[in-house]
Simulated assay, not measured.
Amino acid sequence: MNTTENTPPVRLLTPAELAVCIKVFRDARQWTQEQLAVIAGLNVRTVQRVEQGWPADADTCRALASAFDFLDIDALNKPFAIPPEDELKAAQEQFDLEHVTFAAIPLTTGKQLAELAQTSTMDMSELAFEMGGEADKRFAALMEYFRNYRDALDAYTEAEKREAADTMQANIDVLKTLGVSLCYAERQVLLKGSSDPDRPMPANVLYVIGFPLGKEPKLFATPTSVDIRL
């Protein structure tokens, strides 16, 4: 078999294809055209024209790639291997099968986080993008404090609970000054232990995700099943 026959042709995106890509990327983040224009540093009319299939110059493509956090800001100016439509559809179906999607709820107060300690059994928390050393340290400190609070919640007096919420609020405020915005979601799962896999244990998983301030999505996805060692 000639493998080159199954290799998609490499070429630049047409203006119509670029329009679809930009709209898909924007919709995935639940941004309006106005929000994308602000983040990319472009005129909103430029974004509208790109999504209408008008040709875009190299600088516009770089600005859009940067807004979507492409590692290579010239990616949209380079040739692509374009898969056929059936392959794209199959890839989307496979992604949907392997992932679950949540609404990203803004987490803005220490009181919110303190209340989540009462309902969550465990958490899976991370910064969605590389934020820098200080932001990484502050986020890790916040989540470590949260876990310690959750694990010893029954021992806290009401006054101590209010103090804990204030401490978490202070960390959230610092993260905001560092350009980090927090979102959360909760998920009911069944944990299967290696000792007794036939008797799964119910758990409520809390996801706390840090996004760049102003680039918070309305949805995020996570793998359907996760290997957690207890």
Results as ranks from 00 to 15, higher is better:
Met1Cys: 07
Met1Ala: 11
Thr3Glu: 10
Thr3Gly: 01
Glu5Gly: 00
Pro9Ser: 06
Val10Gln: 13
Leu13Ser: 07
Leu13Ile: 12
Pro15Ile: 09
Pro15Arg: 10
Ala16Leu: 09
Glu17Ile: 10
Leu18Ser: 04
Leu18Asn: 04
Ala19Leu: 11
Ala19Lys: 13
Val24Ser: 13
Val24Gly: 07
Arg29Phe: 00
Glu34Lys: 12
Ala37Phe: 02
Ile39Asp: 03
Leu42Ser: 06
Arg45Leu: 05
Glu51Pro: 12
Pro55Val: 03
Ala56His: 08
Ala63Cys: 15
Ala63His: 15
Ala63Met: 14
Ala65Asn: 09
Ser66Trp: 01
Ser66Lys: 10
Ser66Tyr: 02
Ala67Ile: 10
Leu76Asp: 04
Leu76Trp: 07
Asn77His: 13
Pro79Leu: 02
Pro79Trp: 05
Ala81Asn: 07
Pro83Ala: 03
Glu87Tyr: 08
Glu87His: 06
Lys89His: 15
Ala90His: 04
Gln92His: 02
Glu93Pro: 01
Phe95Asn: 02
Asp96Val: 08
Leu97Arg: 15
His99Trp: 09
His99Gln: 11
Val100Lys: 15
Phe102Asp: 04
Leu113His: 11
Ala114Cys: 06
Leu116Met: 07
Leu116Cys: 05
Ser120Arg: 03
Thr121His: 07
Met122Pro: 00
Asp123Thr: 03
Met124Val: 13
Ala128Phe: 14
Phe129Met: 10
Gly133Arg: 04
Asp136Asn: 04
Phe139Trp: 02
Phe139Glu: 00
Phe146Trp: 13
Leu153Ser: 14
Ala155His: 03
Tyr156Val: 02
Tyr156Ser: 02
Tyr156Lys: 04
Glu160Gly: 00
Lys161Ser: 00
Asp166Asn: 01
Gln169His: 13
Ala170Val: 01
Ile172Cys: 00
Asp173Met: 02
Val174Glu: 14
Val174Arg: 15
Lys176Asp: 11
Leu178Gln: 15
Val180Pro: 13
Ser181Val: 05
Cys183Ala: 13
Ala185Arg: 03
Asp198Val: 05
Arg199Lys: 12
Tyr207Met: 10
Gly210Cys: 09
Leu213Trp: 07
Gly214Gln: 09
Lys218Gln: 08
Phe220Thr: 05
Phe220Tyr: 06
Ala221Met: 10
Thr222Val: 14
Ser225Lys: 07
Ser225His: 05
Ser225Cys: 02
Val226Leu: 05
